[in-house]
Design a protein around this nucleic acid. Structure first.
Length: 239
RNA sequence: CUUGUUCGGA
C-alpha cells in the first residue's frame, strides 16, 4: 500500500492531480484499504484539481473509517472546503474538530481572508492569543494577518500584529520583516516601513523592492530611485 | 522529504 501512497502523493504534486484521484478510485475498487496517508494525498489531489465532489466522497470515507480524530487529516479537509467551497463548510469541519491547533486556525484565517471576512479574522486572532499554546499564533499566522492588513490598509490592527511579532522575537524573520514593510507602506506609513528596513540585518531582493515601491506609491519617487541605485551598489540585481 | 496552513515586492 505504501507504493500506492507514493503514487498518489506524486500525482498530488504533479500538474495532473486528476490522475491521482483516478488512481485512488482504482485501488479502492481493487479492494485495497486506504490509510490516513492515502486519504490525505488524495485530498491534496482534490484540492489541486478543484474536485469538490470527489473530495466529499473522501470526507465520507474518513468518517466511515473512523479517522475523524486525526486532526491533520481534518485540517486537510478544511483546506479542501476552503478552496473549493467556502467559509461555511470549512468552519463546519473546524468546529467539529476534537483538537484545534495553530495550523487549523491558520487555514481558517486564510479562508476567511479570501472571502473578505476581516472582522472574523480579527476575532480568530484574539481567541488564538487567549487559548493554550498549541493554538498560539505562529509566524505563518502573522504573515497571513499582515498581508490582510496591507490589503485593507488596516494600520491599527497591523500594529497589534507587529507588537505580537516582536514579543515573540520573530524579529529576525526575513519574510515577516518584508511583510511589515509592505503593510506600513500600503497604510501610508513609509517612514515606519523604512525604520523596519534599516534595522534589518539580512535583506532580500524582495525587501528592496518592497521598500522601493513603498516610496514610489507614497509619492517619494526620488527616494525610490535613490534606493534603486543603492540596491545595485550593494550588488543586488533587479529582476 | 511517506499526512496539514502562508509563501513574501511588482
Amino acid at each position: 500500500i505504501s507504493h500506492y501512497n507514493a503514487m498518489i502523493l506524486a500525482f498530488s504534486r504533479s500538474e495532473s492531480p486528476a490522475h491521482g484521484i483516478k488512481f485512488y478510485r482504482k485501488m479502492t475498487q481493487d479492494g485495497l484499504v486506504p490509510d490516513q496517508l492515502t486519504l490525505s494525498f488524495c485530498l491534496k489531489c482534490c484540492v489541486k484539481d478543484l474536485a469538490l465532489f470527489e473530495g466529499m466522497q473522501v470526507h465520507v470515507r474518513i468518517l466511515v473509517d473512523g479517522f475523524k480524530k486525526d486532526s491533520i487529516l481534518m485540517t486537510t479537509l478544511m483546506d479542501l472546503y476552503s478552496v473549493c467551497s467556502g467559509c461555511d463548510d470549512a468552519y463546519k469541519v473546524f468546529d467539529e474538530m476534537s483538537m484545534r491547533d495553530t495550523v487549523a486556525c491558520n487555514v481558517m484565517i486564510s479562508c476567511l481572508m479570501n472571502n473578505k471576512r476581516t472582522r472574523d479574522v480579527l476575532a480568530v486572532f484574539d481567541t488564538m492569543q487567549s487559548l493554550k499554546r498549541h493554538c498560539r499564533p505562529d509566524d505563518v499566522t502573522c504573515l497571513l494577518l499582515l498581508q490582510a492588513c496591507a490589503d485593507l490598509g488596516a494600520l491599527e490592527f497591523g500594529s497589534r500584529v507587529r507588537d505580537y511579532v516582536e514579543e515573540q522575537r520573530y524579529g529576525e524573520s526575513l519574510k515577516l520583516n518584508n511583510a511589515l514593510i509592505t503593510m506600513y507602506s500600503k497604510c501610508g506609513y513609509v517612514d515606519e516601513a523604512y525604520k523596519i528596513f534599516k534595522r534589518m540585518h539580512a535583506k532580500n531582493l524582495v525587501s528592496w523592492s518592497a521598500m522601493i515601491s513603498g516610496f514610489a506609491m507614497n509619492g517619494y519617487g526620488f527616494d525610490a530611485i535613490e534606493m534603486f541605485r543603492e540596491m545595485q551598489n550593494m550588488g543586488i540585481a533587479p529582476d
